[in-house]
Nucleic acid binder design. Structure first.
Lengths: 137, 137
DNA sequence: GCTTGACTTCGAGCGCGCTCTAACTTTTAG
DNA sequence: CTAAAAGTTAGAGCGCGCTCGAAGTCAAGC
């Protein structure tokens, strides 16, 4: 049995704020955490693993609503993983699309950076003064 | 000379809404667009290229504030590209980090999907009934 | 006994990036 | 002449994901 952690320790461990941890519990992303005798939350190792996976979903752009659906599936069908898998696969496709779009846009931005570099090099007169002044937007 | 476009045509061409186009102009992301005699906006081909590049920045997560800085540099130093290049290079690094993080998280999610698939395959009794029932979080 | 500090709940507030409304003008079609 | 469509402005409103404030409880240390 690992020693259960306080909310502050979980915040430190996961990078979420204590506010966010309580907020996640309030909106059912996290099932009710067990409490110490004084009413304070005590997070189990299992809870922490769950929070960590949640942040994976969150940081890949999954909206809270969808995370709520996922969390609901876990609670409602603890032994049925099919729907969960389908949800995650849909999300995987969304992430792949996101990466592709970033790369596409990055290519254009890189092109622009290169364009600026060319202008700078030229302005430094490495090979001659430019015959026509640059117009750089 | 290309025929100048109406705001609606630009919206259709760029995927932004007319509201957003006016909003971008209001907050100085787009310099004042020339107007027809009746006061309606008429976007030049140059304007459109600018809007398209803005959306590249936007869709890679650059905040409006930073886009405003970039737009200000273009206006204030039309021939000085160094600061602009530096700004874009910083953004390029941010995008690279973003992609890396997405890929990292994607790997974990993929692992989870695989885990679910394994459970499903096992539950279908392909090779034998499982000796211990699965606990899938 | 009293302060300090970590926790609790509930609800309000905030920053971002739009998005929409209202009231108005102008152009175009019938 | 009229009605519909498209544009204008200024400013309000919204959805998201937190983030914070107020008021209270509890435990430990001086």
């Amino acid at each position: 049995m690992e020693p259960d952690l306080t909310i502050q320790q979980v915040a430190a461990a996961t990078g979420l704020s204590v506010h966010t941890l309580r907020y996640y519990e309030r909106c059912s992303l996290i099932a009710a955490v067990t409490r110490a005798a004084n009413g304070h939350r005590r997070y189990s190792a299992q809870d922490i693993r769950w929070v960590e996976f949640l942040t994976r979903l969150r940081r890949t752009g999954m909206p809270i609503r969808q995370m709520q659906q996922y969390a609901a599936l876990v609670r409602q069908h603890p032994n049925g993983v099919q729907e969960r898998r389908q949800l995650l696969e849909a999300h995987r496709r969304a992430i792949a699309a996101q990466i592709a779009e970033l790369q596409d846009n990055l290519a254009v931005i890189d092109w622009k950076i290169q364009h600026y570099s060319d202008i700078e090099a030229n302005a430094n007169g490495l090979f001659n003064a430019p015959s026509t002044p640059q117009s750089a937007q």
